[in-house]
Nucleic acid binder design. Structure first.
Lengths: 207, 207
DNA sequence: CCTGTTCCATAACGGTCGGTATATAATGTG
DNA sequence: CACATTATATACCGACCGTTATGGAACAGG
């Protein structure tokens, strides 16, 4: 079958153009999921915040679950960027501190909802949200693995005492990050969270 | 108005006796709340697990929220007992280790649901469950205060270096406990959690 | 027995959930 | 203009939510 060369007008929309910005609507949806969790965010909550109707949402994003996965992508790109930057810090101590201070900024700030969106949406697991939880757990395991490798490199560089378990240390750091999110969500002030981080750093193993 | 002296037969039931054991039904309800969280546990889930009908539940416990508070009482009494025992350990290090190992037993075991019931029910906050969250936060703050006092005593006893912040250290320990619950809920094995605790203990400040 | 009280069982209440069918409005193309 | 295509708006779907009204069953006291 011969196929005509498509002029490729890049955005040749044939029908009626949509009246809202997909990216902006997704950002609003992210905010709702972040504040209420996957189960707690109703379609009415979402459509009202996004400023669109339900059919528009389904046409643009598929369904609630697909919308959440896209929102989680955006969340990781925009809000968990500090995790990638942390790995590039010169010493293990600075890696940890970058992580912890970043968590305070993102999860304890005032402009965004308190706490971690992944935690909020995955801890309470309604039966139909099991795939949501699996997605969050998978992403967390992936980034955790990168941190283990970073700490093993630090051990090789003499940056961390040889007797310290890199995997154990990673679990400890992640536990602290999760604790920061939990306490931020429970109403802890940034000052209290900084006290937590300051004390954590005094405990950090010196090379 | 003169009032007759009530013979007080202690359990003078006048009507038809109930056909189920309230304590046992409450224990079943606890299990459901623990596994699914407050919002995730439906009345149907609860009544089926408790082996009673909805009118029986309402007559015996009031409503869903009152049932949850009673279940939370039972949870604290039975499952968070180790928290009180931990405070009586001779040294701050042993207090912390008792806490952390206890958390693995309760939240990482196989007989009960994984994770912390309070966390699961309070992190995702549907608008009508705000009082649930407030109750959990209040109970946590109360027990956290007791731990701060214990660590301040430890500092006075030379058990913890003077330069360590007792409140900060308490926040750190609680963050670790919350992290243990989160990771247990995400599927971490007891061995992984023990690795977390072992590493935490190597970081613990020596007097 | 009868009455009062308490409990169980069924069924229903209004409301919200995620998801859609239908009809209409707005665009590009002939 | 007609036509195909796409987006919007309204109204609706069956299922489930927490809660309760109703009617009958089991007990104590008279």
């Amino acid at each position: 079958m011969e196929q005509d060369v498509i002029p490729a007008p890049a955005a040749a929309q044939k029908g009626r153009p949509r009246e809202f910005c997909v990216d902006q609507a997704l950002a609003e949806a992210l905010h709702v999921f972040w504040a209420k969790g996957y189960d707690g965010a109703s379609m009415t909550d979402l459509t009202e915040a996004m400023g669109i109707t339900k059919p528009s949402l389904y046409a643009a994003f598929g369904n609630k679950e697909a919308l959440f996965h896209k929102a989680l992508d955006l969340y990781e790109q925009e809000k968990l960027e500090y995790g990638r930057a942390a790995l590039e810090q010169p010493t293990a101590r600075k890696v940890a501190e970058y992580y912890l201070r970043g968590a305070i900024d993102v999860h304890g700030g005032t402009s965004d909802p308190k706490g971690c969106m992944g935690l909020i949406s995955s801890l309470a697991c309604s039966p139909e949200a099991e795939s949501i939880k699996a997605d969050v757990v998978r992403r967390r395991a992936s980034s955790q693995r990168a941190l283990v490798e970073r700490f093993e490199r630090a051990k090789a560089e003499g940056d961390i005492p040889a007797h310290v378990d890199a995997e154990g240390l990673t679990s400890v750091l992640y536990a602290l990050l999760q604790g920061i999110s939990v306490q931020a969500g429970a109403g802890a002030t940034p000052a209290e969270l900084e006290r937590l981080v300051d004390t954590s750093m005094t405990l950090w193993p010196s090379p």
